[in-house]
Design a protein around this nucleic acid. Sequence first.
DNA 1: TTGAAAGCGATACCAC
DNA 2: GTGGTATCGCTTTCAA
Lengths: 331, 331
Amino acid sequence: MDSDAKRRVTAADVAKRAGVSRSAVSRAVTEGAYLAPAKRALIEAAAQELGYRPNAMAAGLQGRRSNLIAIFVGEMANEYDKEVAAKLISGLNEAGKWPIVIGGSGDAARDAVNNVLRYPLEAMILRSGSLSTDISEACGKLGIPVIASGRVMDAAGVDNVCCRNQEAMAKGTELLIQRGRTRFGYISGPAGFGASAERKSGVIETLDMSGLALHADATGAFTVQSGYDAVMSLPNCAALDALICANDAMAIGALGALRERGRTVPEDISVIGFDDISMAKWPSIQLTTLRNPINGLVSSILDLLDRRQSNPAKATEMIWLDAEVILRATH
Amino acid sequence: MDSDAKRRVTAADVAKRAGVSRSAVSRAVTEGAYLAPAKRALIEAAAQELGYRPNAMAAGLQGRRSNLIAIFVGEMANEYDKEVAAKLISGLNEAGKWPIVIGGSGDAARDAVNNVLRYPLEAMILRSGSLSTDISEACGKLGIPVIASGRVMDAAGVDNVCCRNQEAMAKGTELLIQRGRTRFGYISGPAGFGASAERKSGVIETLDMSGLALHADATGAFTVQSGYDAVMSLPNCAALDALICANDAMAIGALGALRERGRTVPEDISVIGFDDISMAKWPSIQLTTLRNPINGLVSSILDLLDRRQSNPAKATEMIWLDAEVILRATH
DNA sequence: TTGAAAGCGATACCAC
DNA sequence: GTGGTATCGCTTTCAA
């Protein structure tokens, strides 16, 4: 018969049950601790029977690793961000780290971050988002290491992992030039995102080197709809034979709009995107794109975390990731 | 001059700085506690200056709410799951709950769950996944409330929120019958998922009531590729004038395959999906579908959580959600 | 209104 | 090897 309020089983309960001291119980659950095998078995049986689990909060108070990592993911509005978040969560789990995930934006997100910072976090992983600067500042004061990606943060104590956006776009542009394209359009991401400017200049500089220039230039919001809208409102759409988009979502929107405007891809006009989100390889899409490597991103973040843990005082690092050209059916 | 190892600021530090007792500091950060306004201001200033944040672990040890909620999301392989996870995380954040997210499957996920259960969780939110039963059992032993969705779990202490799959599919089937379709194909989800069986029987029973039957029947894996493959290997594809898919991803794959096989949608053949993932409304897709309401799901989970917290002993509940027919361009 | 002191549950150092 | 005991940082009686 249970009592009404179910109390959590503690080490003391197990100790009493097994007829040993609390210390022995603690040693039984610790990896390399002195304990007679027979006694250990006895304790383990009692623990099993009672359903004992050491309370991570009490253990955390002892100055041990909390294994808690915060991830700030912003709005998670676009597909790439969601894929990154999913992979990052699995990656951390496999490394034995437990991610507390914070989403959203604005004041709600700010409050959330402030509250989560009450936990003894081992690190804060920042993925874009407008609050990045504030958050990293707060973490700095608390001595919590920050790992940023998506936008480079040039602050003390912040490690970065970042895609070579400009070089990647240069590769993509080069591909289309070699295919014989000469009249390029570009759909840019929103201003204010570091990646937007880098990607665009990768295109422009590469065109320039071949004596070419942009014939059309629109700005989207990194969404499918915005890519569609951008192309639908392009005045000289019919004159273009190549369209480069700052991300896959906009490229996918653009693809729909181009078909509606009577252009055929890739015979008539080439389209490439950026990211290689999972939809890019869907049979009905088959988008040629530049892969913004998610696995590389996640493993870099994990490496950075590891190195930071083993040497908290080390200098901050910046890891650069190269994008790969993925040839499908739209170039 | 900082000392080398940066120690976290504690209430004692603030107390010394403000010239008061530790108790006073604790009261200053507690909402409705006796404290002279002047003293409170003094303490708040000192806390601000030192960058003090109460340590949630130490506070959690006091038997207060931990605000920690675990979410088990399984593989997050398909789009719907990712969208649900994203919305759920934001929803919990807004409610002042901090989600520890566990992904993956197999032994790694099992270990992860076992470790996360060391934290004093307020609840475990389960989203499909093969480990559901094991996890809910472990939570039951620890007295941690479980909220399941995606698959109905008929276990003690488990609240459920669930879509009326069968009724939803009946509505979708009805739509196509009224449009004059008579030769139906169906692409089912993998066996073993409760939703697969329910959705399929919704189709079959509705057809039956109109004296119709399934002309083709394939099984996919809830992925785009599997929907594509299923249609490509359908022997009597040309004879069909309607195709119902157990989810949107497979419907999108099917759409691509149908076009490749020379069928035109929706003139020639109608296609509908299930879920209404965000890609369903993309300009190039425009899938007619049954909306598996994410917002309703998230708010139901939050409600359930709230009620469970305010009355831990209450009977378990089951909340049913209705799907809505979303008319786009493929029916 | 305030300070002193007793826990919360686990770990680690100490003698034995 | 093992059992006592101080300790982590906070909240919360209990006196004053």
